[in-house]
Simulated assay, not measured.
Amino acid sequence: MFDTMTMTKVLGGLCGTFLVYLLGAWVAEEIYHVGGHGDHHEQAYVIEVETDEPADGEPVEEVDFSVVMASASAADGEALWRNCRSCHALEAGQHGTGPALYGVVGREVAFYDDFNYSGALAAVAEVWTPENLNGFLENPRGWAPGTAMSYNGMRSVEDRANLIAYLDSLDD
């Protein structure tokens, strides 16, 4: 059944397959890389990605938060509350994973004695002003390094202002 000629054909088929694979790899390397065969290759093509900065290299002008806060909508902020309610409560003294947020705007940072705050917050600010809340909501770990809050942050300044306006509208 298996004679020398059959084994020669099988071995020739395997060698031929391996040769086609090597030639394909070489052709792909030539197509997708520009330049020599040294350690460093130039990219054959570049995919352009939009950035927030203008093409002329000038930085984007920062908007004053007080201007954004003046036009904030508490009704729009109520819809944004869903991101917070998994860890926080709006009832005074009722804590979740995070402290209660009733009356948070304008109160001391470590307000509740029955909640275990991380020391990182008290080291950064004393009072939750709208500006402090804006910085914290934008990037909690960047604003207060070492904070226990695991939220990644809210990128839109308008959304942050709306959420702060909503939280401010809850108390008297």
Rank of each mutant, 00 (worst) to 15 (best):
D3I: 11
D3L: 08
T4S: 09
T6G: 04
T6M: 13
M7T: 11
K9N: 12
K9Q: 14
V10W: 10
V10N: 01
G13T: 08
L14A: 12
C15R: 07
T17P: 01
F18R: 02
F18A: 14
V20I: 15
Y21L: 14
L22E: 12
L23M: 12
E29Y: 14
E30D: 12
E30L: 14
I31M: 15
I31V: 15
H33A: 13
H33Q: 13
V34Q: 10
G35A: 10
H37I: 09
G38R: 12
H40M: 10
H40F: 11
H40V: 13
H41W: 02
H41K: 12
H41I: 04
Y45G: 05
Y45Q: 11
Y45H: 11
V46P: 00
V46C: 03
V46H: 11
I47P: 03
I47Y: 10
V49W: 07
E50D: 14
D52Q: 12
E53F: 08
P54T: 02
A55V: 14
D56W: 08
G57V: 06
E58R: 14
E61F: 06
E61L: 08
E61A: 13
E61I: 08
E62H: 08
E62N: 07
F65M: 04
S66V: 11
V67H: 09
V67Y: 05
M69C: 00
S73N: 12
S73G: 08
A75D: 15
D76T: 08
G77M: 11
G77P: 11
G77Y: 10
E78K: 15
A79G: 12
R82T: 08
N83S: 08
R85A: 12
S86M: 05
H88G: 11
E91N: 06
E91F: 01
A92E: 13
Q94E: 12
H95I: 13
H95N: 13
G96Y: 09
G98H: 06
P99G: 04
A100T: 05
L101E: 10
Y102F: 11
G103Q: 09
V105G: 09
V105S: 08
G106Q: 07
R107D: 15
E108F: 02
E108L: 09
D114E: 07
F115G: 03
F115V: 05
N116Y: 11
Y117W: 15
Y117I: 03
G119Q: 10
G119D: 12
G119Y: 03
A120E: 06
L121P: 03
L121N: 07
L121G: 05
A122W: 04
A122F: 03
V124K: 15
A125H: 03
A125I: 00
E126L: 02
V127D: 03
W128Q: 03
T129Q: 06
T129K: 06
G135P: 07
L137C: 09
N139G: 09
N139S: 14
P140A: 00
R141M: 10
W143D: 01
W143P: 04
A144M: 01
T147R: 01
S150T: 04
G153K: 08
G153Q: 09
R155V: 10
R155P: 00
S156T: 01
S156W: 00
V157F: 00
V157L: 02
E158A: 05
R160W: 04
A161K: 02
A161E: 01
N162V: 02
L163H: 02
Y166R: 05
L167I: 00
S169K: 04
L170Y: 00
L170T: 00
D172Y: 01
